[in-house]
């Protein structure tokens, strides 16, 4: 986790430095705000990764000499085939189109979104396609 943490921290701290220079030199607050927010997008994930780095032993993927046998437990549970991302996508599409063609497409779109989101969650809870 050390490298992952430092990648984010490096970007965050660098942008923070740019923010300070820009703020005092340009005296323009819009750009300084955007830069400050960007620095946060680097530093916040860095804090999360750093928090875990302190509490975890190095994972097999962080150890240069690790063998395949050191990987403990399943890598993860991966869903197989499911129609719900497609339904959700079409729902989002129809909902977005309502901004152009009027609210009626949103009625169909939002129903599809609710249906797909609930069904996908239930699918996970059943433990079928996780």
């Amino acid at each position: 986790m050390k490298v992952e943490y430092r990648v984010y921290l490096g970007i965050g701290v660098f942008v923070l430095l740019v923010t300070v220079v820009y703020f005092f030199w340009a005296k323009e607050y819009g750009g300084a705000m955007m830069l400050f927010g960007t620095a946060g997008l680097g530093i916040l994930p860095a804090l999360y990764l750093g928090w875990w780095k302190r509490r975890m032993d190095p994972r097999p993927e962080d150890v240069e000499e690790a063998t395949m046998a050191e990987s403990k437990g399943a890598v993860g549970a991966f869903p197989d085939h499911t129609i719900f991302p497609f339904v959700l996508g079409i729902g989002a599409f129809l909902t977005a189109l309502s901004l152009v063609f009027g609210a009626w497409t949103a009625v169909i779109g939002l129903s599809l979104i609710v249906f797909a989101a609930t069904s996908a969650t239930l699918e996970s809870r059943r433990g079928g396609a996780v």
Binding site: P79, P85, L88, A96
Partner: peptide
């Protein structure tokens, strides 16, 4: 050396949003 992406269903959703966005 990974078996799939971390969030496969999110991955599928992002393709459908891309396709519908392009069509739009």
């Amino acid at each position: 050396g990974a078996p799939d992406m971390a969030f496969p269903r999110l991955n599928a959703l992002s393709y459908w949003l891309y396709l519908t966005g392009g069509t739009t």
